[in-house]
């Protein structure tokens, strides 16, 4: 296991009578990308704001390298709600953020130019921020978050509002940073990105942990097989097929969620003969579907989660 950079323990926070998050515990290690997932309002940003010291938790503790003092200049942060001062130069604002982090100005300038070049913004350093397109602005924000070579980088919805090309640029950069030893905490609700990028993930719903673990383990544990059958079948018939955990049917399309330890060839052989099959697809539940399930309170995963916890 890699060196532990950030440790969050039993974090809890309420606003007035409303409980936003409770009992949140996870760790982020050097060189890994750790994903926090959850639907809107689940408490992702609140968790992150507590780590950044923008809010103070009511309970629980946060440790950085084992210290409860959070050294802000060693953390890079790209908030979800982000912007830049409008009527200033790109370079000026980058240097200001570097200065706030106590990073030497000369080095900051060099790094800023390198990154601008890397992100296809070469020659834009003296452009006013208000003249940049939205995508360019977001690239500048990412540079601002990493200009001081942080040990821990926290990205809150880094891909929101990006076009596919820029998304790719961001993804590559995040991978590269992790490969160079930066610990990265990334929150998102874009499952495909998370699936591709993250080494581990923490799924949160209504302020509580739902899933926490290695991406591979999570997939193995939760991403069960599902069978999509197109054809006109009574729901009663489908539900009585062995090893079927749940049935979702809509018109002539039915999705059978299978139990975890199902053996597919055996299961296929046991299908009732009267089944009307126009098309049959067997694949695994994607992270995306797990997410949708949680967000729409179908509780399938929650039950499973409890079982495996």
């Amino acid at each position: 296991m890699n060196e532990r950079i950030l440790k969050v323990e039993r974090l809890g926070k309420s606003f007035k009578d409303k409980r936003i998050i409770s009992d949140i515990s996870f760790e982020v290690h050097r060189g890994e990308i750790m994903g926090i997932l959850g639907p809107n309002g689940a408490g992702k940003s609140t968790t992150i704001r507590n780590i950044m010291g923008i809010m103070y938790p009511d309970e629980g503790s946060i440790h950085f390298h084992g210290n409860s003092e959070i050294p802000r200049h060693k953390i890079g942060y790209l908030p979800e709600e982000r912007g830049l001062y409008k009527n200033v130069n790109v370079m000026d604002i980058l240097l200001y953020f570097a200065e706030l982090k106590d990073y030497p100005q000369k080095k900051a300038k060099k790094r800023a130019l390198e990154y601008l070049e890397k992100f296809g913004l070469a020659g834009k350093e003296n452009t006013k921020v208000e003249e940049l397109s939205k995508g360019m602005g977001q690239k500048v924000q990412l540079i601002a978050a990493i200009i001081h070579e942080p040990e821990l980088l926290i990205l809150d919805e880094p891909f929101s509002g990006l076009d596919p090309v820029s998304q790719e640029v961001f993804k590559e950069e995040i991978k590269e940073l992790a490969a160079n030893g930066t610990a990265i905490l990334l929150s998102s609700h874009q499952m495909n990105m998370v699936e591709e990028l993250c080494d581990r993930l923490f799924m949160i719903h209504r302020g509580k942990k739902v899933i926490y673990g290695e991406m591979e383990d999570v997939k193995r544990e939760y991403a069960n097989f599902k069978c999509t059958i197109i054809g006109d079948n009574p729901e009663e018939l489908l539900r009585n097929i062995p090893s079927v955990h749940r049935v979702e049917s809509k018109e002539d399309r039915a999705i059978l969620y299978l139990e975890q330890d199902v053996h597919i060839p055996t299961w296929l052989r046991e299908l009732p003969v009267e089944l009307n099959v126009y098309e049959l697809i067997i694949d695994r539940v994607s992270l995306h579907e797990i997410f949708i399930d949680i967000a729409s309170d179908k509780n399938m995963i929650v039950k499973e989660g409890v079982k495996y916890a």
Binding site: E81, R82, L84, Y85, F97, L100, A145
Partner: peptide
């Protein structure tokens, strides 16, 4: 309005 506050507040109180 320009939503810079949170970035700045990640560095200073």
């Amino acid at each position: 309005k320009e939503k810079v506050a949170e970035i700045v507040l990640s560095s200073v109180t």
